[in-house]
């Protein structure tokens, strides 16, 4: 049975799209079939992070409106066979998505994939609502910073009231993905610690993704970070998180880059 997962946060720029691509690729790397859907209508960028921007012909809105079928719109990843992308369109018409259309697309995808990962736009408007509407499970992407934690708390409230699962009287499973974490600054007391955020939001932890230049390098190359550099610190954190999603118990750590002195001196290379 397909698992519908929404990657959401309320606040923009915290790492939802990065995390959608990385978790999607990581799950696909373990052999699961995965589709990542961009719900950020008008500001699509999951296609760029995935390196598929030049292969977009049809998009989510075309499928929702019946102008294309799913097979025409889905873009198969060139690196991992079991990974696909359903891109957002660049239309400025925010009403282009409809509740019935989105529901039909999600139901159709359920027959084709193990995981359906919905990349939510920022905010608490229509797009964010459609992205979470059919979810079985929510990954709340949060930075250790006051406004991000506050927005995550709002989103948790919406997940508990505005989703199909909530309306059926069931509890939505919500997992915290703490991203852009800097253990050194947290230790110095200049950044909220993991335990602070966990205590305030009181949802279980899926993973801690360290702040790392590897993320920007990967997006420059148009590749999920777990594919661009699987042994980098953020990749190891995402790969662990993906295994936790599959039910494995893995010790929680904040992976860090190994200091390779000679590697850094002589092996310097631009991305």
């Amino acid at each position: 049975m397909a698992e519908v997962l929404v990657v959401t946060s309320g606040k923009g720029g915290v790492g939802k799209t990065t995390s959608t691509a990385a978790l999607g690729a990581a799950l696909a790397q373990t052999g699961q079939s995965v589709v990542v859907i961009d719900f950020d209508v008008g500001l699509r960028n999951l296609d760029l992070v995935m390196g598929a921007e030049r292969r977009v012909v049809y998009d989510l809105i075309n499928v929702v409106q019946g102008d294309a079928n799913l097979n025409q719109a889905l873009i198969k990843d060139k690196r991992v066979e079991s990974l696909s992308l359903l891109p957002a369109s660049q239309t400025r018409d925010k009403d282009a998505l409809t509740a019935e259309g989105v529901e039909r697309v999600i139901n159709e995808l359920k027959g084709k994939f193990d995981w359906i990962i919905c990349d939510s736009p920022a905010g608490i408007e229509r797009g964010a609502y459609f992205a979470m509407r059919h979810a079985d499970l929510a990954v709340i992407v949060t930075n250790p910073e006051v406004s991000s934690v506050r927005d995550s708390d709002r989103i948790i409230g919406l997940l508990d009231s505005k989703t199909e699962k909530a309306e059926r009287g069931e509890t939505m499973e919500k997992l915290l993905l703490l991203t852009r974490y800097d253990p050194v600054r947290a230790e110095r007391g200049d950044m909220l610690k993991v335990d602070d955020v966990l205590e305030i939001l009181s949802i279980p932890l899926l993973g801690i993704i360290p702040e790392s230049p590897e993320v920007l390098k990967a997006s420059n190359l148009g590749s999920p970070v777990t594919l661009a550099n699987p042994i980098s610190a953020p990749s190891r954190a995402y790969l662990d998180a993906a295994r936790r999603l599959r039910g494995e118990t893995i010790e929680m750590t904040v992976p860090s880059e190994k200091k390779r002195f000679f590697g850094n001196l002589f092996g310097r290379r631009a991305a």
């Binding site: 006051v146 110095r188 007391g189 200049d190 950044m191 909220l192 610690k193 602070d196």
Partner: peptide, 8 residues
């Protein structure tokens, strides 16, 4: 003084 306790 560190700022994280204030944030919390």
């Amino acid at each position: 003084r560190s700022s994280a306790p204030a944030a919390r």
